[in-house]
Design a protein around this nucleic acid. Structure first.
Length: 693
DNA sequence: ACGGTTGTAACC
DNA sequence: TGGTTACAA
């Protein structure tokens, strides 16, 4: 019998809180008549009744499972109530659930450090709160204990047949002869029960929780008794618990690693892992994973609860399974625009509510090609620095798609004209924004500073221009250079079978394509725009004068945008098919070759032209050639220039007015700091209760 | 090629 | 870094 060589109990009090079938609860709060009924939330009703993404416990009793389709669920449980996920822009929209999740996080973060682990899960480090409680109001001194607390499950607690379970739990919680660690856990149980009651009272949502000495055990415990219950894992119960615990049910072991443990090591429970030495596990799974496995076999997990209440990224995506696969460029552009619109909306609201800005835009697609079963893995994701503004994000995402498509087609040596293309398509598209950092407090005054200067903006002796002038020339073409036009494309894209199922019938019309081509020509011919750090639209929000400018810019931009063009058209015309697509690509191609390059350079990029976005026949524009006066005009041609705040020479700060220098410095070194929420701070706006109920 | 969408993290 | 892959809910 192997002996644990390390202390398995670290004395912390950690809780994992898990909302019960959360999406269902959100819908039931919106429609209280659904409460108590077998209910499921379903998205996309068209195909076999849509896919279930949340199932109420009543429906689970009838055998309804998450993996089912709406039709199957009806079959298994004819009385089931199916509620559809809201749809916006032709895709599922999860905003109501996100907002509801935020309500919960706000409440749970009142005690101790709180980590938002997902839309409906939270970790809490309650160590301090438990210690304080133990000193001030220890359970053993209580004459009355709340019902919710004594409904706790305590692993390893013996309850004999004749016993009153709740009384046994009460006695365990209030034992005076318990170890210090167990007393702390008991306090944790009180605190969590209280938090759960607050959640229920303020949101009408129930949740389940696990209280243990580390995250892993807390997570494990929260799933053991659902719904609306909590489970305590005393240290003394850990060994027995893990001994028979199915390895595949452990977090991180539900996938390939867990399968490998089963088939390669013949392991089925966590306890089975104990027979393997740390070295052996490291040898097979690598140093980190090996040690991690050795530790979890012993109930050891040192992961800290991160104090983070907000998501680290935002994304918007959609799949186009089977016959819906996108087979034309126009349909890809349409859907990218929809996805970018949603993403942009969420970025704007994150900025408004949390004072954060995202720095990276990533586009990912999945594509298939007949005859290559692995092709769906080969479409690369591409990213660039993120410029705020819906139109810009749309433009940039499209450019990233081009870059990815070119790589993808390169993989297949794909040189045919796509009039012959029946054999590939795009089966998924997504755009996401990451590297989201707080705007340092006081930035407002920086925005104001810019706003006073940028609209008139042409005089070169102003600090903003100095920033740009100083920075841009000093930047060697870097790996953040991007903006690729797929110059090898000579494809036609025939219309796909389906896929554009709303309001995009005119995408392939010649005059639209003409417009788009003009846009491309313009892009290639114009010098690029130099944007201020961050972006002008964001700045505009806090300042009227900028706002006017922004509107003008947006308007100008929109005249080139797909949407604006679409609106001018009369509905009902049919797509013209591949002919117009060809025209578009020809124009695109010509534009590319007529002026060999059009790219974005992030100032001060430190690596030279090795960017994966750049092909060898693309030349990088020397930054010096940028006409700084272009800052005032033609924003729709502006996509070429933006720069990364991290890469600007900080010495330029000295040239700014003293009153904003300090603030500006924080732009250059965005500090990673735990996101602390205090009620009354502006962050709490993020957690505004859902008004829709 | 129907379990969709969204998010995190490790690894290279 | 960016990009890929895996995992989870």
């Amino acid at each position: 019998m192997p002996v644990a060589r390390r202390e398995t109990c670290d004395g912390r009090v950690i809780a994992h809180v898990d909302m019960d079938c959360f999406y269902v609860q959100v819908e039931q709060r919106k429609q209280p008549c659904l409460r108590g009924l077998p209910t499921a939330v379903v998205q996309y009703n068209s195909y076999k009744g849509g896919g279930l993404i949340a199932v109420s416990y009543e429906a689970r009793k009838c055998g309804v499972k998450r993996s089912m389709r709406g039709d199957e669920a009806k079959e298994a449980c004819p009385q089931i109530q199916l509620v559809q996920v809201p749809v916006a822009r032709g895709k599922a929209n999860l905003n109501t659930y996100r907002n509801a999740g935020s309500e919960v996080v706000t409440i749970l973060s009142r005690k101790g450090r709180c980590e938002r682990a997902s839309i409906d899960e939270v970790y809490l480090d309650l160590t301090d709160a438990a210690q304080t409680m133990l000193m001030e109001t220890p359970p053993e001194s209580m004459e009355h204990v709340e019902e919710e607390v004594i409904r706790s499950h305590v692993l390893g607690l013996q309850v004999k047949d004749g016993d009153d379970a709740k009384e046994e739990v009460r006695k365990w919680l209030c034992r005076s002869d318990a170890s210090y660690q167990e007393k702390l856990l008991a306090c944790g149980a009180f605190i969590v029960a209280d938090l759960r009651m607050q959640v229920l009272k303020e949101t009408e949502f129930t949740c389940s929780a696990g209280i243990a000495h580390n995250k892993m055990l807390a997570k494990l415990a929260s799933a053991m008794n659902k719904p609306a219950q909590q489970t305590v894992v005393p240290h003394s119960s850990v060994e027995g618990l893990l001994e028979s615990f199915p390895i595949k049910k452990m977090k991180q072991l539900g996938g390939k690693l867990g399968t490998s443990l089963q088939s390669d090591l013949g392991i089925n429970t966590v306890g089975d892992l104990l027979q393997f030495s740390e070295e052996k596990l490291q040898q097979r799974y690598g140093i980190n994973t090996g040690t991690w496995l050795w530790n979890i076999a012993r109930g050891i997990s040192g992961e800290e609860v991160e104090g983070r209440l907000l998501p680290k990224s935002h994304g918007s995506g959609k799949t186009f399974p089977g016959p819906q696969a996108l087979k034309t460029f126009a349909s890809v552009q349409h859907w990218l625009n929809e996805l970018c619109e949603e993403l942009s909306e969420r970025l704007e609201s994150d900025m408004d509510q949390n004072k954060r800005i995202a720095h990276t835009l990533t586009m990912h697609a999945r594509a298939y090609k007949r005859g290559d079963l692995d092709s769906h893995k080969k479409f690369p994701s591409k990213s660039c620095s993120l410029r705020y503004g819906t139109t810009k994000i749309q433009e940039d995402a499209l450019t990233l798609f081009h870059a990815g498509l070119r790589d993808f087609l390169g993989v297949f040596n794909f040189k045919t004209h796509s009039s012959e293309n029946n054999n590939w398509g795009i089966t998924a598209l997504s755009v996401s924004a990451s590297k989201i950092v707080p705007i340092p407090s006081g930035t407002h005054s920086i925005a104001k500073y810019f706003s006073e200067r940028l609209p008139s903006g042409s005089s070169s002796n102003q600090p903003v221009d100095n920033v740009i002038d100083e920075v841009a020339p000093s930047s060697p073409p870097g790996e953040n250079c991007w903006e690729v036009i797929p110059n090898e494309l000579q494809l036609e894209y025939p219309e796909e079978d389906t896929g554009m199922n709303h309001s995009n019938a005119c995408l392939d019309q010649p005059d639209l394509l003409c417009n788009l081509s003009e846009k491309v020509d313009g892009l290639t011919e114009e010098p690029s725009l130099v944007a201020p750090p961050g972006n002008e639209e964001r700045m505009a929000q806090s300042e009227p004068s900028r706002d006017i400018l922004t509107k003008e810019l947006r308007h100008a931009s929109d005249t080139y945008s797909l949407k604006a063009v679409e609106k001018k058209k009369t509905a009902g015309k049919k797509p013209q098919g591949s002919c117009s697509i060809t025209k578009f690509f020809n124009n695109y191609h010509n534009a590319q070759s007529s002026f060999e390059q059009k790219n974005v350079t992030n100032a001060q990029g430190s690596h030279s032209a090795s960017s994966s976005y750049l092909s060898n026949n693309q030349v990088e524009m020397p930054p010096q050639e940028v006409d700084k006066n272009s800052i005032d005009c033609m924003p729709q041609r502006s996509q070429a220039w933006s720069y990364n705040i991290d890469e600007i020479d900080p010495s330029i700060i000295d040239e700014l007015p003293p009153e904003i220098q300090d603030e500006f410095r924080t732009w250059f070194r965005p500090r990673k700091r735990p996101h602390v929420v205090r009620r009354g701070s502006n962050i709490t706006q993020y957690f505004r209760p859902d008004k829709s109920r």
